[in-house]
Amino acid sequence: MSELEVNNLVVAFGGVKAINDVSFSVEPGEIYAVIGPNGAGKSTIFNAISRVYTPQFGSIRFQGQELLNCEAHEVVSAGIARTFQNIELFENATVLDNLLVGRASKVRTGALSEFFFTPRVRREEHEHRRKVEDILDLLDMQHHRYEKVADLSYGARKNVELARALCADPKLLLLDEPASGLNPEETADMSFWLKDIKEELGVTIVMVEHDMNLVGRIADRVLAIAGGEVLAVGNVTEVQSNPTVQAAYLGTDA
């Protein structure tokens, strides 16, 4: 069974159909890239999966569970974590605190016991912290631990967002342009990390990305969309050589 199955998805804003009858499925443990020109509806698909938008029609099944029955804040408990195109971090908190918020879906203590900071709260805090430290190790960012997000560079913030999503112990990661705005070295780091995440943690990754080098290096399969419709699915070379995809990027005369 596929990990994520999207069937006949339709998302419309007013009369404009941003996504028109899109279907695809993602297998467990693969890196699946979504590409397409600007305005193709890539982020809209992500927003529909993470329930920021409510689709007009279609179904999104994750490990057999229908996500459209979930509220936006319940998606993460189902096992899906995401990052955002324009970084959405908690600016006025430290990296450590940001990552600890990433554990929010695993919190089992209530406000009352936290008010008195019972030993159980402390024990759980230690557990969360250990998990956060594992992620910090994995992404090699221990030195940023106590820095405020507002003081970090753009590239570092991208990593913090990735780390925060990982802290939620997801089975599926949705990455919205993980390499945009990164310099070549940072992009290379990112591609290693994404492979590590796939191989060491066994996390399935779906990502929107414009950098075809990165996509070519790590993606197992690629979905090309334009104008809210699927153009092609396949491995990178197949999709890149597909005439409709080329037409969508370069215009019909090319």
Binding site: V52, A72, E74, S77, E91, A104, A168
Partner: peptide, 18 residues
């Protein structure tokens, strides 16, 4: 931390399960 998260970014707080 949830309070601060909701203050700084509602969208990502929600996506993290708050």
């Amino acid at each position: 931390r949830a309070f601060v998260a909701v203050r700084d970014s509602e969208t990502s707080a929600r996506s993290l399960g708050l």
